[in-house]
Design a binder for these strands. Structure first.
Lengths: 349, 349
DNA sequence: ATGCCGCGTGGGAGCGGTCCCACGGGGTGA
DNA sequence: TCACCCCGTGGGACCGCTCCCACGCGGCAT
């Protein structure tokens, strides 16, 4: 590592920005009037409003957030909490797309987005106090585990909270999720439509709601087609590539005759592909494969992977709007929103 | 999309949190003393300190950020600005790893991280005023274009600013970057060591410093090896997969005899692989290939890609510490830090 | 002309901290 | 014993905003 001093440019001293008082003086009105103009109150004459707006423009005035926040007891900011252990997910489009959606949904409301990565357990434990100390008006949480009680604590502390995904099917907090079950069903139906009949599935960890839902979708599709669900065709992975390989190996051992696989994530599918190739099976010739997430790897593995896409940006936007809702009308009750998925057909099935 | 009302739980009314005054009363001391304890001043007797700490614990007191910020003129938060047009990068480990590093580097200092995605030009234009209005103590910027003047404006406004990467080799602002030139040189030296002699390169857009640096590294390696630099072996891409394909196509046309390619990004390398395969060349048998970034696709394309890894998390941490430095000692001058890269050898070369 | 209404307005109070000045009391040196 | 110092301390004065009360004034009904 090398470090270099850069040529030092001019550096203005601690610039004091104009206050609301200065604007009032310049516009020849009282502080109250300026405040009203800034906050869009209708009870201001056109003349005053014009004068104030001109003064604001001339001075380049921007309200001091801290001062406002102190009296309104709002911060106009929300936190996005991401357990940092989930860095795996972080590098997927999942996080970034949702964040973009959240950001877009928040921007219109003039809300700031605070990114909080909880590195370890102890840090995570402090979070409830931290977040409730009027630091944020609301909290968005991603990748919440089934046994996580932080959301409940926030709820008890009256901090508006919205989750990405739900912890279980008895989730009481507001949340947004994709139609995992429906998406999986469509994926498997696609395999059935391609003439496949011995369709296996690689599931995620069964203590996660997404994993259970995606397995349910698989079952539903088979049942609707009048096919029996064979337990030997179900192997569990852990959403990692290695887990996908191991599951695929197990499936090939138990049911060498399988002609299709539905993997509950693209990353596991990418592991499965390697294992299939190692076993001499061609994809999709011998075995068709469908993944879930439409992540980056889906486009880049060979063959490009047919996968189920979640409307990530829209999920983010919806999370933002649910949260803004909860903030605006506290006690309105929580809402759950399920968004439809879409099957992206590529060459693996 | 479907929406559901969830059962409504209890909802406490606007909870008023204890103030510093309440702590003082409970501890039987003055406000000043409590403030001193909170801010770690040594001028407090052990007795008072103990009393205050107990009162804080009993009341669950947490200082009000807004109130503090109002008087100290600090916000204890920094913004991470990401031009949203760069969403492509966003989904790479690049962003997420740097963000993790930044977050880790900031956490120790009790700083908050504000994520600011600038969606379009107009939004981006407003950013300078927005950020300078004492909203943040400093700014971190990613993916800054060569012609971007926002950093300079921030600098003029005396807002401490640190960039990820530099705009050009005359960059005056503080920044952190990987040793792109050295990394590229090592990559090409690896190809040379493998016996390759006709080594092409696919560059990024030449108006980006990283692209220029990586090309320079390529040149350096050849020159050190006593080989001439052949302009026909240099094709420019744009850091996209399609750009990589097009560049590879051009290279094969101009120099069908090439036996190795150094692509300035993994994504371009992944495009190159497709084109090489289409042309019937085996990788690495006929043509060896090295990429840059060690991104997700590097591990997942076939064959797994040898690539140059940047120490992303450390870059983030370093950015944070440079920024904290600039905030603490304004006018100390800006610094540039270059971090070493590492060649990750896989099967493509 | 007088009273009343309501709109637009000015400005005091206060949000919850930090800063700093002034003050009391114990120790030290003359 | 007295003057001085220093340490720990309490509390007034803000920071820049919003909230809200009270007030002036023109228009309308009486």
């Amino acid at each position: 590592m090398s470090t270099a001093e850069l040529p030092q440019p001019h550096r203005t001293a601690d610039v004091r920005r104009p206050t609301l008082n200065a604007v009032a003086a310049r516009a020849g009105v009282g502080r109250g009037t300026v405040s009203r103009v800034i906050n869009g109150s209708p009870k201001v004459s056109d003349r005053s409003r014009a004068a104030v707006e001109q003064a604001i423009a001339e001075l380049g005035y921007v309200p001091n957030r801290a001062a406002r926040s102190l009296v309104t007891r709002r911060t106009d900011s929300v936190a996005l909490v991401v357990p940092d252990a989930e860095n795996r997910l972080f590098s997927e489009p999942y996080f970034s797309e949702i964040i973009r959606g959240v950001s877009a949904g928040l921007a219109g409301a003039g809300m700031q987005l605070l990114l909080v990565l909880a590195r370890d357990e102890s840090e995570y434990a402090r979070l409830a106090a931290y977040l409730s100390a009027q630091r944020v008006d609301g909290v968005l949480m991603m990748a919440v585990h089934s046994d996580d009680t932080l959301p409940d604590r926030l709820d008890e502390l009256a901090v508006p909270t919205v989750l990405a995904g739900r912890r279980s099917d008895t989730e009481r907090l507001g949340h947004v999720r994709a139609d995992n079950r429906g998406g999986s069903r469509v994926a498997v139906e696609h395999l059935l439509a391609g003439g496949r009949r011995t369709i296996a599935t690689i599931t995620g960890p069964m203590d996660m709601d997404v994993a259970r839902e995606r397995l349910d979708g698989y079952r539903e599709a088979l049942e609707r087609a009048g096919l029996a669900v064979d337990a030997d065709l179900i192997a569990s992975g852990d959403f990692t590539e290695e887990g996908g390989r191991a599951a695929m190996r197990a499936l090939l051992r138990r049911r060498p005759g399988l002609d299709a696989v539905f993997a509950a994530s693209d990353v596991m599918a990418s592991g499965a592909v390697l294992e299939l190739r190692a076993a001499g099976r061609r994809v999709p010739g011998d075995v068709a494969l469908v993944g879930f997430d439409d992540s980056i790897v889906a486009r880049h593995i060979d063959p490009p992977l047919t996968s189920v896409r979640q409307p990530l940006a829209e999920m983010g936007r919806t999370m933002a709007s649910l949260l803004l809702d909860e903030i605006a009308h506290r006690g309105t009750g929580h809402r759950a929103v399920v968004l439809p998925t879409e099957l992206v057909v590529r060459q693996s099935a």
